[in-house]
Amino acid sequence: MDARRKERVVFGLLSLSMLAVVVPVLLVLYFLAVRGLPGVTWEFLTALPRENMRAGGIMPAIMGTLLLVTGTVVFALPLGVLSAVYLTEYSRPGALNRLIRLAIVNLAGVPSVVYGLFGLGLFVLFLRFGASLLAGSLTLALLILPVVITASEEALRSVPVSFRQASLGLGATRWQTTWRVVLPNALPGIMTGVILGVARAAGETAPILFTAAAFFLPRLPHSVFDPVMALPYHLYIISTQVPDAPPRIQWGTAVVLLMLVLGMNLIASLIRTRHRRARHW
């Protein structure tokens, strides 16, 4: 086979594989939009569920997921960023450093249901938080910690070494250098990573199954020790545990969850592109 024909065949194969990726995504979006969007009304977004979740809205589930996600950021952001700062700015290459990295990689590979069980054991039972917003947020924070650390590390590393040298050369301490020069310039990259992690946390069911999610709780939580409804878990319930739940509600919930996650991904990529355009180095 001559080189030019080979080139065409390869190009054809590559195009096919691209289609195989893009087409299912478009199909998912299409079916969700057609079946789900009509159900997404103002009342659906803002009302409490009625008649055993067979009517009414999903407001508590939306709020529950937003609260869980907020709690996740509160715990995962400082912990993840400080870990990344330790790894990139303070630790010296060596056995300990490699061990920590190995731990992070493995943490990323742990199935989410295992996080759920861990959260149940540690936060819900041992620390007696009960199935609650707090326990669920902490569990989700652990889940996305590897993503946050890895993204933050990458963002910190992309800040030129020359900035650090200039700062240290002026007699700044390591922490002053990190706080005043490195972190501000790494912030957009860190935010991108955090939002992507949070988008994943918003869609997870298994980690909140035993730690936070309420089957049916037609009100908002009064404290961080209250359980909450959450979109992915609610979707699971009305699809499998509630006979004759109208498909309108099921598809509508799926659309809302997907829009939430896609919206966050969109924000993340907006931050990234804006930052790329703005930076001079």
Binding site: P160, S162, F163, Q165, A166, S167, G169, V181, N185, R279, H280, W281
Partner: peptide, 9 residues
């Protein structure tokens, strides 16, 4: 003072 100018952004 370093080889390449390195002002902070």
């Amino acid at each position: 003072v370093f080889q390449a100018p390195n002002p902070f952004p």
